[in-house]
């Protein structure tokens, strides 16, 4: 067999097969992410993948690059430290919905506000998969979870809207069904200077899918296929009702944190020499 180029970035010899359940969408997201990194022309020493705690946060363990597995919800603070100490590194944060929006919610909005150059891949599987399927901030109202056996009463977060309101410069959403689309979005997010968020709607067939009677991984992917709409196709807002909107939702230019910070240092040092 010709050695696949994706194996350059994967610790095939000691880590695979991974611990994720059969049919889990996190594997597809990892597949797309590694391909996006390779297509961006990055080498193993140019990338740092940071994660917190959760199913999706196991991914850095399988990546053959600089990786950092940190405390629950603290992926973004650690990534901020990495980026400020080594601005030449391409920092990618990969985290789940519980990790990034519940315990790490404040870090998430403030990193978006600062607009530090990093790529955040939020894998949204609508529940806390690792701990047994508890309801998370993204569990839709009326759906079932282990802590919501009669249906979840609370309303859910829209991570993309939060990021956009907080000041992120690039916000996009895709699903694990649209893998080629997802890879393109991650590539764009890596290229973008500033805080870029890619939300990946993923299937959790073992818990969320089973509790909501959505069937196996294939059935859940078919659900994503039939219930998504691309943002470019929406002419009337009514068309998007009850559907997952995918595509680039927000793309603007804004001053990046490190550039501003460097400028301040330069100015302060110039004044010091003056005195």
């Amino acid at each position: 067999m010709k050695i696949p180029e994706i194996f350059e970035f994967i610790r095939v010899d000691e880590r695979l097969p991974h611990i994720l359940c059969p049919g889990c969408g996190i594997g597809s997201a990892m597949n797309a992410m590694v391909r996006a990194i390779i297509e961006s022309g990055l080498k193993n020493d140019d990338v740092c993948v940071v994660s917190g705690i959760g199913c999706s946060s196991r991914i850095p363990g399988y990546i053959d690059a600089d990786t950092f597995h940190t405390l629950h919800g603290r992926a973004i603070p650690s990534a901020t430290g990495v980026k400020l100490a080594h601005p030449e590194l391409e920092v990618i944060v990969i985290a789940g919905d519980g990790d990034l929006l519940a315990i790490g919610g404040n870090h998430f909005i403030h990193a978006a506000r600062r607009n530090l150059d990093m790529t955040v891949i939020l894998i949204n599987n609508f529940n806390y998969g690792m701990t047994g399927g508890q309801a998370s901030p993204t569990t839709p109202q009326g759906k079932y979870a282990k802590t919501a056996p009669y249906g979840w009463t609370e309303r859910n977060f829209d991570a993309c809207a939060i990021a956009q309101a907080s000041g992120a410069v690039f916000v996009a959403r895709s699903t694990t069904y649209h893998v080629t689309h997802l890879r393109t979005l991650i590539k764009q997010a890596i290229k973008k200077k500033g805080f870029a968020l890619v939300e990946v709607i993923s299937q959790c067939p073992t818990l969320y899918g089973r509790l909501n009677r959505m069937g196996d991984a294939v059935k859940m992917l078919e659900y994503f296929r039939d219930n998504t709409i691309s943002i470019s196709q929406i002419k009337d807002p009514k068309e998007a009702e009850g559907k997952i909107v995918i595509g680039v939702l927000h793309d603007v230019e804004a001053p990046e944190y490190y550039e501003t910070y460097k400028e301040i240092i330069r100015r302060a040092q110039a004044q010091k020499h003056h005195v």
């Binding site: 059969p22 597949n31 893998v179």
Partner: peptide, 12 residues
């Protein structure tokens, strides 16, 4: 190959 979550299949 692109969808496989387990990196188990490759087409060349």
């Amino acid at each position: 190959e692109l969808r496989c979550p387990d990196l188990a299949i490759f087409v060349h």
